[in-house]
């Protein structure tokens, strides 16, 4: 598919701030499954800082803005050609050992319920790939998609107890369970083309990646009961949502901030 992305993030500050610094993971990954035709990333009125490819293969760009400002806008426009790789992250160069993704983080601490769910799902599994699929299905079955039920700070354990959540919660739950079963797992963030209108829910999307020996990293999207295909654009990864966040930023002299995000992913006619 040829997908075009338009993504504008606007921060409004209740009082002028002295400046802001941002670290952006907002450039499509280099994999066999996606080829970037054009990509523009800009922080309005900002100065570009260092940019580099990190050990996990993500392209990081940093920006700073001198204040006083009351508004900050991050703009992304681009076109990516995608191919369905059945979820397998092929042709992606990285330096981080998969076992570095076995450590639990704050939102991915396994509680008794997550451990039990993982153990039950794993019962009778034949090999890593089958196990990963079973865990993903278990998460889909137990956490219903319901926006607004959880917040950005909700942990995997809380989401499971609630039985509701959004893609972040699904991914956190799956990551936690996979790690508990000894499979390295991480959080992937990106975009999803969900329907022809382009105004789909969760166009800014997240899913989990699980390491299976012999195959490498494989994406699993329990929120949509599938593995990422050519409707997905991958931006980067991390141990959890915060670590994989497309935007990490700090405003200096921070006032109360509010956030507005507009994302549209459209498919071009071929």
């Amino acid at each position: 598919m040829i997908l075009t992305v338009s993504h504008v993030t606007t921060y409004h500050y209740a009082a002028p701030v002295r400046g802001a610094v941002q670290s952006l993971r907002l450039t499509p990954s280099r994999t066999d499954g996606q080829r970037t035709a054009s990509w523009m990333l800009q922080v309005e009125g900002g100065t570009k800082g260092g940019s580099f490819r990190d050990g996990a293969g993500d392209w990081i760009e940093s920006w700073s803005v001198r204040g006083p400002i009351t508004e900050l806008r991050v703009r992304v426009e681009g076109t990516v050609e995608t191919t369905d790789m059945a979820g397998i992250l092929r042709g992606h160069r990285e330096n981080v050992s998969p076992s570095a993704y076995l450590r639990e983080t704050e939102p991915t601490v396994a509680d008794a319920a997550l451990l039990t769910l993982a153990r039950d799902a794993a019962d009778g599994a034949s090999g890593g790939l089958d196990l990963a699929h079973r865990l993903s299905t278990a998460v889909s079955d137990r956490i219903a998609y319901r926006p607004g039920a959880t917040s950005a700070r909700t942990t995997a354990a809380e989401a499971l107890a609630l039985g509701e959540g959004v893609c972040q919660d699904h991914a956190h739950a799956l990551i936690t369970m996979a790690r508990a079963q000894g499979l390295p797992a991480r959080y992937a963030s990106g975009y999803l083309f969900a329907d022809a209108s382009g105004a789909a829910h969760e166009a800014a999307h997240a899913w989990a990646e699980i390491w299976v020996d012999g195959l490498g990293w494989i994406g699993f999207d329990p929120a949509n009961r599938c593995c990422p295909d050519d409707r997905y654009i991958r931006l980067g990864s991390g141990s959890d949502a915060r670590d994989a966040a497309p935007i990490r930023g700090v405003a200096v002299g921070a006032a109360t901030e509010s956030l507005n995000v507009e994302v549209a992913v459209r498919a071009q006619q071929q």
Partner: peptide, 23 residues
């Protein structure tokens, strides 16, 4: 705070990006 603990008031935001890009 952009790379490690987000609640840290001691750090320099963006320092790790400068470091990792060789600055």
């Amino acid at each position: 705070p952009l790379c490690f603990r987000p609640d840290s008031m001691l750090g320099v935001p963006g320092l790790m990006d400068v470091y990792r890009s060789g600055g």
